[in-house]
């Protein structure tokens, strides 16, 4: 009895010791600004003068008096629902392909990773216009095969969001690399013994690769949901939310309210709601994980 108590205490101390760098950072550097955001969400704050308490005013206005808000919510969900699965699918496929034994893989991996490091460059904005503009590459290619396109893909409300979806899918480098690292952690012996048992390509994938990769798939899924719902950079540098607000995604709209029109309180309220919504969806994925994520170690018993 006492020994268990002692062991529990030791474990608690060890645990807190290990997470202490993060915990200290969280309590000193992050928590205060976050509480600041929470406080500001109940105020009218124009950044320059002291915040005034207005209770739930920002939230009421957001939910009932701002049609652009709901349009932005819709656009964000659309973007995330389409782009997250596609991006993960491509990342996993390419990681599998680049994991097979071939020559020149180092080179290909670098090539496939390149779009991701171009991600935040201003040059990307210019390039994307060059590709999806009226005078762009896509229309030129279509003209080559005899289709005369009058579309300005990036400026048309029907297609603009798709150009951004393509952009983030094209930048699948980071989940790809994580999948690659995950694939490398699967012991070759497992494949070998499965091979002896008669398993081939697709079966190996479903019997061994998927289950053993599931912790990493889970990680990528959670992170991409978070990134998808809080996407900012791509619409900010390329479409600035247009045309007709079809790419005015949540985090972008929030930023523009807060910084460009000095409604920091409103922006903080928006951020808080975003936090809750993202946490809700992440929570669902976490809850579901016991059904499909397979861990070698159920729990840290040590």
């Amino acid at each position: 009895m006492d020994r268990r108590l002692l062991e529990n205490r030791r474990r608690a101390i060890a645990g807190y010791l290990f997470i202490s760098p993060w915990l200290i950072g969280f309590l000193t550097l992050t928590l205060l600004p976050i509480l600041g955001v929470v406080y500001l969400s109940f105020t009218k704050y124009d950044i320059f003068t002291a915040p005034q308490w207005i209770g739930l005013g920002n939230f009421v206005r957001m939910f009932t008096g701002d049609p652009r808000y709901w349009k932005s919510v819709g656009a964000t969900f659309y973007f995330a629902i389409v782009s997250v699965p596609l991006k993960l699918f491509f990342a996993l496929m390419v990681a599998m392909i680049l994991n097979a034994p071939h020559r020149g893989l180092d080179f290909y991996r670098a090539v496939y990773y390149t779009p991701s490091i171009l991600g935040t460059s201003v040059a990307v904005a210019v390039m994307w216009r060059e590709i999806f503009g009226f005078d762009g590459l896509i229309n030129a290619l279509l003209a080559n095969i005899g289709i005369r396109s009058e579309m300005a893909w990036l400026g048309d409300p029907r297609t603009a969001v798709w150009t951004l979806i393509l952009l983030v899918i094209w930048q699948f480098g980071s989940p790809m690399l994580i999948f690659l690292a995950g694939l490398k952690q699967i012991p070759d012996e497992l494949y070998e013994s499965a091979h002896i048992d008669g398993a081939r390509g697709v079966r190996k994938f479903f019997w061994i690769t998927l289950p053993l990769l599931s912790p990493v798939i889970f990680f990528n899924l959670v992170m991409q949901i978070i990134f998808g719902l809080t996407v900012f950079t791509q619409p900010f540098i390329i479409t600035q939310g247009g045309p007709l607000d079809t790419t005015n995604f949540y985090a972008l709209y929030l930023y523009r309210r807060a910084f460009e029109t000095f409604q920091m309180g409103y922006g903080a309220a928006m951020a808080l709601v975003l936090l809750l919504v993202v946490a809700f969806f992440t929570g669902i994925v976490f809850k579901s994980s016991s059904l499909w994520v397979f861990y070698e170690s159920k729990e840290g018993k040590a």
Binding site: G133, F134, D135, A152, G155
Partner: peptide
């Protein structure tokens, strides 16, 4: 004059001088 969709895509709404 350019259609607004083209203005948005190719000419950055006229906000960017070089475009």
């Amino acid at each position: 004059i350019p259609h607004i969709s083209r203005e948005a895509s190719d000419y950055a709404n006229g906000d960017n001088l070089e475009m």
